[in-house]
Structure formats: C-alpha cells, structure tokens
C-alpha cells in the first residue's frame, strides 16, 4: 500500500528553494520531502513561518525605491 503524507507542495525558483533548504538545515523541521530543484513538500504548519523567514531573508537584498519628491 503506498503512503499518503499530508503537506504543502511548494513550487519555486531554484534560488528560493536553496534558501528554504538552508532555513531547514538549522532544525530540520520544515521539509518533508525534497522532490527536485524547483519543488519540495513542507509541513503544513510551517508554511506561514517559512513565508515570513523568506521575506526577511529577501529584504536584505532589496533596495528600497527612492521616494519621489512630491512636487505638487
């Protein structure tokens, strides 16, 4: 009998996936199954936290846009 494991499938760019793998390497509490370089299955209850952590990580690389001078 095959097994069915509840989880959330994540499809993303390889770069994002490598960040997720890196986040998981701390406690190994996120990833259920690493499928391929763009796909993995994670625990359902970790998705929100994962999104949050990913956002934090990406913020480091994001340059805020220059506020336009309001000329009116």
């Amino acid at each position: 009998m095959p097994r069915a494991i509840r989880g959330v499938l994540i499809q993303c760019e390889p770069a994002i996936k490598s960040i997720i793998v890196h986040l998981d390497s701390v406690n190994n509490d996120i990833i259920i199954e690493d499928l391929d370089e763009q796909t993995l299955v994670v625990k359902e209850n970790m998705v929100q936290l994962l999104k949050q952590k990913l956002e934090d990580r990406l913020k480091e690389t994001y340059r805020p846009e220059e506020p336009l001078a309001d000329s009116d």
Partner: peptide, 23 residues
C-alpha cells in the same frame, strides 16, 4: 508570490510501477 503553495498529499512508497502508473 515567489513560491506557489498547494496543500495536499504526497503519495510515495508504491509497491510496483504499475500501481504508481495507475494511481
């Protein structure tokens, strides 16, 4: 939306290739 998420079930550990193919 850097990642697309879909909740569901991962099916693995099939007994045979036929079983996998059929399901």
């Amino acid at each position: 939306e850097r990642m697309q998420t879909t909740a569901g079930f991962l099916f693995k550990d099939f007994e045979s290739t036929e079983e996998y193919a059929a399901l």
